[in-house]
Design a binder for these strands. Structure first.
Length: 479
RNA sequence: GGCGGCGUACCCAAGUGGUAAGGGAGCAGUCUGCAAAACUGCCAUUCAGCGGUUCGAAUCCGCUCGCCGCCUCCA
């Protein structure tokens, strides 16, 4: 069964057939690096990380490029405020972005091009557009002429006349049409600039993505992704430029757009002051809980960030790893399971069908938790009967977790690894907790339950939960 | 004004023609010194509302109501 992908261009789910059989080229718009990245960047990055991983999982050779916009008005403004060169500022935030991605378990794409390293190509494409009569230079600026592209607006479903009727665009007398957009901007004295046939200047925003795509992936790419807000004007303009320059249609076969992250039901925006940085979220929740939260809704739907929803995601992750921990201790013979021995048995069909259907990660997660329940049930009944029967079933379940982790990027760690990350947030030193546990168990042995409960309650007030199990007392940070 | 999307239980959420996955919360039970965790049971005769198509609709069509996004930098 082919993968089905919702294509923003046709507004339909389509069978995924890449240009070259067995290989996929994929480009995703990355961040403009002038500040720390927020949870919205995380959603886009994680969504496409999963798509990248899944396509590879399905056997495609995927070439994935995600850019950094490292020259832009906002970067220049911020750099001038701080009194540092704009490239230094951009470099700093590229590093911060990479650190955030690493913390979220987002894989490094095949290529991570920067706009400033693609100037030569940008100038070439711009020149070609002028030569073809699709663009014109005025006072060192170069504009793309939207009227020259008959199907301009095909991605966003807009037409030029409607856009002009609702004009909120500032009228620039030098432009032939108010909707014409800059391919190249003449630079002011305090701005970074490059030599060009039109004088010193710097690239416009949209052209860099076209140039980077062509350089790293070719003139037609299979998948191009980004946030929903990029549909217009950014992606619309990319299509216009690229198709005009190369004459090849389509520029992109499948356009994918992820939904927004709202904060407590409100749009995240600078003016509302509710921008939530990845850096801050990572401090309070485990990286897998954050990924689980992002992947438990479909990538195209809007999601609402709230403390409750993250707490729930963390509780679910805990349930998962607690079960895995239990399997490891109660069924040590499962350690020798050869993952993927069941791959061709049709066992994972449900899960893979869900992924094939426009990457329905939410359904996969539902399937995973059904298996978690099954594992616990098996262990309970083994405990009751005293017999370890059903090893084959465990091998199925654990293989399924392993397979899912290959493309979801969660459910793949050791329980110890997970709980170490989680418990590093403890407000009480581990040695102190261990000491209190020992004291409490001594009290319990002496039937001094008052003291035992006192210790447990005291720790709970500091966010530490104690659990008495068959193998002794364990502790964890309250979710 | 133009374009697009959404409305499923207390909350989150999957399901897009065959009779409502999953998670969280809650209640009851098993287990436990008591808890916690785990397990079991309960928790939407119904999918915003009203009509229509169909043997059959949360799913398709029409209308109404409500919410949201884009059209300006934005993931």
């Amino acid at each position: 069964m082919p993968i089905k992908i919702y294509n923003s261009l046709t507004r339909k789910k389509e069978d995924f057939v890449p240009v070259r059989e067995g290989a996929v080229t994929m480009y995703v718009c990355g961040p403009t690096v002038y500040s720390l990245s927020h949870i919205g960047h995380a959603r886009s990055a994680v969504s496409f990380d999963v798509i990248y991983k899944y396509l590879r999982y399905k056997g495609y050779k995927v070439t994935y490029a995600r850019n950094y916009t490292d020259v832009d008005d906002k970067i220049i403004k911020r750099a001038n405020e701080e009194g540092v060169p704009s490239q230094e500022l951009a470099g700093r935030y590229i590093k911060e972005f990479d650190d955030d991605m690493d913390a979220l378990g987002v894989e490094v794409p095949t290529y991570r091009p920067k706009a400033t390293e693609t100037i030569k190509e940008i100038i070439e494409v711009t020149s070609k557009l002028i030569d073809k009569g699709c663009a014109y230079a005025v006072d060192g600026d170069v504009y793309y002429s939207v009227r020259k592209k008959k199907d301009y607006g095909k991605l966003s479903g807009k037409n030029i006349d409607d856009l002009e009727a609702g004009a909120r665009v500032e009228v620039d007398e030098r432009k032939e049409d108010p909707l014409d957009f800059a391919l190249w901007k003449a630079s002011k004295p305090d701005e970074p600039s490059w030599e060009s046939p039109w004088g010193k200047g710097r690239p416009g925003w949209h052209i860099e993505c076209s140039a980077m795509c062509m350089r790293w992936l070719g003139e037609t790419v299979d998948i191009h992704g980004g946030g929903k807000d990029l549909i217009f004007p950014h992606h619309e303009n990319e299509i216009a430029q690229s198709e005009s320059a190369t004459g090849k249609v389509p520029y992109v076969k499948y356009w994918l757009h992820n939904g927004f992250v709202n904060i407590e039901k409100e749009k995240m925006s600078k003016s509302l002051g509710n921008i939530l940085n990845i850096r801050d979220v990572i401090k309070d929740y485990t990286s897998e809980a954050i990924r689980l939260f992002l992947l438990s809704s479909h990538y195209r739907s809007p999601i609402d960030y709230s403390k409750d929803s993250l707490r729930e995601a963390e509780a679910a992750m805990e349930r998962f790893y607690k079960t895995l921990q239990r399997v490891n201790t109660e069924w040590p013979e499962t350690k020798n399971i050869d993952f993927c021995v069941h791959c061709n048995e049709g066992r994972f069909t449900e899960m893979l069908d869900a992924m094939d259907d426009d990457f329905n990660t939410a359904e996969v997660i539902g399937n995973i938790f059904k298996e978690v329940n099954k594992a616990n049930r098996l262990m309970d009944s083994a405990k009751a009967s005293g017999k370890h029967e059903g090893l084959l079933e465990f091998s199925y379940i654990l293989s399924m977790f392993h397979e899912a982790s290959e493309f979801l990027g969660i459910f793949g760690r050791t329980p110890e690894g997970y709980f170490t990350e989680k418990n590093s947030r403890a407000s009480v030193p581990a040695e102190e907790i261990e000491r209190l546990i020992a004291e409490r168990n001594e009290a319990r042995k002496n039937k001094n339950f008052k003291r035992a409960d006192e210790i447990r309650k005291g720790l709970l007030e500091q966010g530490i939960v104690l659990e008495d199990g068959a193998k002794g007392t364990t502790w964890s940070v309250k979710g």
